[in-house]
Design a protein around this nucleic acid. Structure first.
Lengths: 238, 238
DNA sequence: GAGTGGTCTAGACCACCTA
DNA sequence: AGGTGGTCTAGACCACTCC
């Protein structure tokens, strides 16, 4: 297992910040010093520092240095491609997944459009609810194109589909496009969720792309209003 | 006005994609070829291509090349630090801003905590509603620390505060932390918005930081459920 | 095997900040 | 003026894809 030098440097510094060896407001050693310390070139150090910037650990100030940021507000990176399993672990809650519907179908026009396929293609359809602290508050509807995922079982759906896809099938998930809107509850929501009187629901629509740029999954994650939370960390462009 | 070489290369290629000279599925010239074309080094080309990747224009595939992506799904980058003015322009809607409350205050405990200040600090408080296509559907509550923004007028608030802060005051906004939750409507929401019967509201909480890493603004943007939409584009880390 | 992107090096000059 | 990060160069070797 070959580890890149810049990843190693990134991890070491990130760990120092996580553990409090370096704390908010501290200035890192200069890039030249770090290059010497790690016996590498300055460009490699810069690559490591850029990842730290990306992940909200530090901010660079020209002529001054790299300042350690206060990360308490960014503790759980829900933004991005976090699967439900990782998410619930992060939150440290008691969670349980129930598979309600599962099978191969020829999708309706709406799903065909979202997945950009024709009616000929077979699609895995999975409907699962997520029970957090005793209440069913999230309904996940997943659609996978069969061409990409030849086999899926109920057992896999009860665990983590992503884990199976990346681990067993060796497909590499590359990027995702996400939309968040609020919609009226459907009969399906009422059937599978503890709506607690709410008649609207937060819908997170996810379009997931593989490493070879093909779209292979469409997911709707439907959250009860009071249990929804989305966290984002954005850097200014330019 | 000195323009970086890699920014120039980025812009040229991005423009070719925007204009359709290069379209989804096309493969860019190789990094070596581009280096030759632009009479520069390969690392500089790579820097330009990385920005294209960041912005969802291309995806690189090792051993193969850089593939142009389908960007139709990412047309409006609401994700990130987009101010309301930019946003409404992007959406091409008829919009109007009304300033309801405006002045210096000593903030309550909640805002003190959000801004991480003590009760001694004076804070600008601005409450504005946004009228889109004839309905008041967004309520923006902004809090600026006076230390950073000595003067603010009602006229500025009716236009774009960001424009004033970055343009006139010369402060540089660097990054923001964002949280999205749904909350019950407050009396204030009822007073200033056309709620259309909704008793819940989408709240986008924004923590805005300056270039020198200091937090200087807290904003709550409260959207009527049916008018809320958030778009995100995420690359897989690692 | 030829070509691609990914990593890494050892320099260089610049713009910016602080003293 | 000295140190910092930002950009840029001209090489090098590697892992991967495709033919």
């Amino acid at each position: 297992m070959k580890v890149n030098k810049y990843v190693m440097i990134y991890k070491e510094i990130a760990e120092q910040i996580d553990k409090g060896v370096l704390s908010a407001g501290d200035i890192l050693s200069s890039e030249n010093d770090l290059a010497e310390q790690y016996e590498t070139s300055r460009e490699t150090v810069r690559k490591a520092l850029n990842v730290l910037v990306q992940n909200g650990y530090i901010q660079k100030i020209k002529g001054k240095g790299s300042v350690v940021l206060n990360r308490e507000k960014m503790q759980f990176p829900v933004s991005g491609l976090v699967s439900f399993k990782e998410l619930s672990q992060t939150l440290g809650k008691e969670t349980r997944t129930t598979v309600h519907e599962f099978g191969l179908t020829h999708p309706d026009a709406y799903i065909q459009k979202q997945l950009r396929i024709t009616g000929d293609e077979e699609v895995w359809r999975v409907v699962r609810s997520r029970n957090i602290d005793g209440e069913h508050v999230i309904l996940d509807k997943d659609y996978f194109i069969r061409k990409n995922v030849p086999l899926l079982t109920k057992e896999i759906c009860e665990d983590s589909i992503y884990h199976y896809i990346e681990g067993e099938l060796g497909l590499v998930i590359s990027y995702a496009h996400k939309e968040i809107v609020v919609e009226p509850c459907t009969e399906e929501d009422q059937k599978y969720l503890d709506l607690n009187g709410y008649d609207q629901i937060v819908v997170v629509k996810n379009f997931v792309f593989l490493d070879d740029t093909t779209l292979f999954q469409y997911t709707e994650s439907r959250h009860r209003l009071d249990k929804f939370r989305f966290v984002d960390f954005a850097r200014r462009e330019k």
